[in-house]
């Protein structure tokens, strides 16, 4: 179980590195799709069918959108001439990652190990399943206990849709 997850995660990391370094934008996007669908398999292994379904739908929409964007353009990755400035940027980002590693250590310390999670937060939600009448606990949390969160999510989605339509309709000066 843990091994299977680790293998898929390893493939996802390789695909992510390829997506960042690919010469052709279309292959970069396909590699990104590999990462997204690998995430679906990870969710299924982690016993989370709801987010797996949502992730399939979202990943497909994102991929279609990205392919539409890229096929409309030159597709070629910019010629990357290796100059001193780029080395400086790479060095700075590695430094930034080391700082992040420190924070990761601080975050990971109070967590339970993988697979040994205690349900201290979710006990009330699990007990409330009888009151909500929802067979699916995730749906119970989303639509009953945290209904306002879901409302906010819908608001964000509509705001984004309005933003996309507005930006597309702008004529602008060329």
């Amino acid at each position: 179980m843990e091994l299977m997850l680790a293998v898929i995660l390893g493939f996802m990391i390789i695909a992510a590195i390829y997506a960042i370094h690919a010469k052709d934008l279309l292959s970069a996007i396909i590699a990104q799709g590999f990462v997204g669908y690998g995430l679906v398999i990870c969710f299924l292994l982690l016993r989370a069918p709801d987010i797996a379904l949502v992730q399939i739908v979202v990943e497909t929409i994102t991929l279609i959108f990205m392919v539409a964007v890229v096929l409309d353009s030159t597709r070629k990755e910019l010629d990357v001439q290796v100059d001193r400035k780029q080395y400086r940027i790479a060095g700075l980002s590695v430094l930034f990652m080391l700082v992040l590693l420190f924070y990761f250590n601080r975050i990971i310390a109070p967590l339970d190990g993988f697979g040994e999670h205690s349900m201290r937060m979710a006990e009330a939600y699990a007990e409330g399943a009888g009151q909500t009448g929802a067979i699916n606990l995730v749906a119970g949390v989303l639509w009953d206990f945290r209904g306002y969160d879901t409302l906010g999510e819908a608001v964000v989605l509509f705001a984004a849709a309005i933003g996309v339509v507005t930006i597309f309709r702008l004529t602008g000066k060329n």
């Binding site: 709801d50 979710a122 995730v138 969160d149």
Partner: peptide, 12 residues
Amino acid sequence: VVDPLPQAMVLT
């Protein structure tokens, strides 16, 4: 059962 709370948050 696994914890439903993080799953609901991830869905959002």
